[in-house]
Design a protein around this nucleic acid. Structure first.
Lengths: 151, 151
DNA sequence: ATAATTCGTTAGCAGTGCTAAGTAATAGGA
DNA sequence: TCCTATTACTTAGCACTGCTAACGAATTAT
């Protein structure tokens, strides 16, 4: 109960936006250790958890235009983190796949990021953690709903 | 009723990380409309809500190195969104201030961002909003504590 | 007075976003 | 079938954002 005020959606959205930015800035520090930029790391994550896919799909998943993803994939390929094959049914398409090295690197980077955030949460009580967990679940839920509404 | 399980810091960090990424991907779309890059917009926000400050302070607030902030401020100045004065007590320092134009632009961008996220929250109940607001406050708090521990 | 520190800038690199324009392959219609 | 339109990806070139290294100027400490 604590707060008597009923927060407006606008107020919540604004504070949530700010909090998310500040939170991710801390996680970002660890990314430097991976030796791979954030866009490549994020795309690699999609490949590892979503499986091989065409460039256009990958671009859509990352909400980025095709030329941008083309360069990201080229970078991943150059580092040996992903490989490109041509589609058997459509020679225009490519099939991007994470390599074993890519999967290994992603897991390490992911662990570092999460541990960095866990460290930040060291002052949080169990009650706080419960609130944060429920908030994270809510966010995933409403974001998914919003994405579904679009298509 | 919620959950009987006590969430670990690691688990909370992991879900929070994922939620923050997905949330910000939606907000990012609106930022393009401002005609000002995200780093400049964010720095301008600090100036508007935190008042005039030295470059070093601003860099610290944005968790960015001095040369990066130097360029961001130069960009803001070039667009007439901020102005630079010399500090009266210490001639090495500069005093960065948001202009009226900067404040106006920030408020517009802020409104767009907030409306975008508020739309996403359209399905959330008052109870959900309360959870999200408290989570946002907690995040800001622990991030601030982490930043203070460093210096 | 001199040395060390602090503040900000400049230069140069890498990465990431975009649009415009080009190439190659596929799909569709006359 | 052949010609056109569409789709998939790449290339080129721009702007923005992050970094380190190296510099000049001002302040602080010895």
């Amino acid at each position: 109960m604590s707060d008597l005020k009923k927060p407006s959606r606008f107020e919540v959205a604004d504070r949530l936006h700010s909090a998310a930015i500040h939170l991710l800035r801390h996680a970002r520090k660890q990314d430097a250790l991976a030796g791979v930029g954030p866009a490549r790391l994020s795309a690699l994550s999609v490949l590892v958890f979503g499986g091989p896919m065409a460039l256009r799909q990958l671009a859509a998943a990352e909400q980025v235009k095709a030329p941008t993803m083309s360069r990201i994939v080229a970078g991943l390929q150059g580092s040996g983190l992903a490989k490109i094959e041509t589609d058997a049914h459509d020679a225009r398409r490519i099939r991007v796949t994470a390599t074993a090295k890519g999967e290994r690197l992603l897991q390490q980077a992911r662990t570092r990021r999460v541990q960095q955030l866990a460290e930040i949460l060291s002052e949080a009580t169990h009650r706080d953690l419960d609130t944060l967990l429920r908030a994270a679940q809510l966010i995933e839920q409403v974001v998914k709903q919003a994405a579904d509404r679009k298509q």
